[in-house]
Nucleic acid binder design. Sequence first.
DNA 1: TAGATTGTTAATCGATTAACAATC
DNA 2: TAGATTGTTAATCGATTAACAATC
Lengths: 213, 213
Amino acid sequence: MVGKEISQAVIRRMPRYYRYLGELLDEGVERISSNELSSRMQVTASQIRQDLNNFGGFGQQGYGYNVKYLYEEIGKILGLNEKHNIIVIGAGNLGQALANYVKFEKLGFVIIGLFDVNPALKGTLVRGIEVRMLDELADFVKDHKVDIATLTMPKEAADSVADLVVSLGIHAIWNFAHVDLQVLDENVVVENVHLSDSLMQLSYNIVKSHTKE
Amino acid sequence: MVGKEISQAVIRRMPRYYRYLGELLDEGVERISSNELSSRMQVTASQIRQDLNNFGGFGQQGYGYNVKYLYEEIGKILGLNEKHNIIVIGAGNLGQALANYVKFEKLGFVIIGLFDVNPALKGTLVRGIEVRMLDELADFVKDHKVDIATLTMPKEAADSVADLVVSLGIHAIWNFAHVDLQVLDENVVVENVHLSDSLMQLSYNIVKSHTKE
DNA sequence: TAGATTGTTAATCGATTAACAATC
DNA sequence: TAGATTGTTAATCGATTAACAATC
């Protein structure tokens, strides 16, 4: 059954709600109204209520939202109630940086494997994880549950690696390669992080702010 | 003078146009119609024409767009005709990974300095750039033109470092710390890269694709 | 009960798509 | 000139905001 489709605009905001609720929880705040949250987050209270009601009625009239409950519910919506095993393909600087990120693990994303094609890296340890060669991936996937494949290799190689991971049954790709992956399989979800696009957007805004003055 | 405001939705698409036009240029394609580009990029031809016409009439009726010309014009819109000097504050794994990214340099973004507060890192060389201590930043900024400060430190420190760089006259921040920076100065532009938000969005889509089946 | 605040419907605003006159 | 394709206006669609009845 397919529920009513929730727009990407809403989904992009959910992690931010999750973060703010986490902070409130740390501060010991027990309940919060859409109005208070609104002034903290600089979004309208109306949007908060609309966004949340895409997923269910988490609040209570006259009371507001219970912080802990809402935090946990959003966590579930985002799939954070389950562990996700991640592999990183491309053990260069970025791949290693990602493997070293402790924060991800706190959210339930555990990096269990690092792969590369460069024989010089074989066996290198990154945060206790040894770098394997890409041709060992098929065997690795047989022995380990892999939920997400992170791609950090140069763009020229990205499409063929994406094909490989999909053929091995991995259904989620976190793509840092600067291409639009040609993944035809409908069941594969792809999330792109295009760092140079982000830098160009910043650069655009710099130009704009100069012409304003 | 302030021109009509161009929406963020449009600006987010510009780097993608730039990328596709670069590819066409490499392929030796001289001209392209909004229709051909449309089928390559999987967006509507109408949107392409609308987007471009926010910035000017770059095409020619009956002909289409000259690839080289349009590529260069979008480059100018994105500020890529000028070099940008970048410093990275936080010389941990991510900071070092960013400093090692050759791709940015090709786009005119040159990393000229690396800073940290950890004395153990002092003097370490990353791609020929030595890591300096954060208290040397004020002097560094006097001697070097710094266009963009990249923040990769833990979120707890991000706000005070943002204040520091702004007080030193840096007007653009590329923020990787997982907070919404409280920069009050209207003239400072901030671009956020929230990697864990991205991972959570992926995770959401994984959950969704499972419930669909 | 009265007051507060949600959940939800209606109104507005903005972004995308369609259509077509202008023009190369 | 005829054909092609832009630039731009008009129509549609979707997302945000406002309003308010439901209800705790």
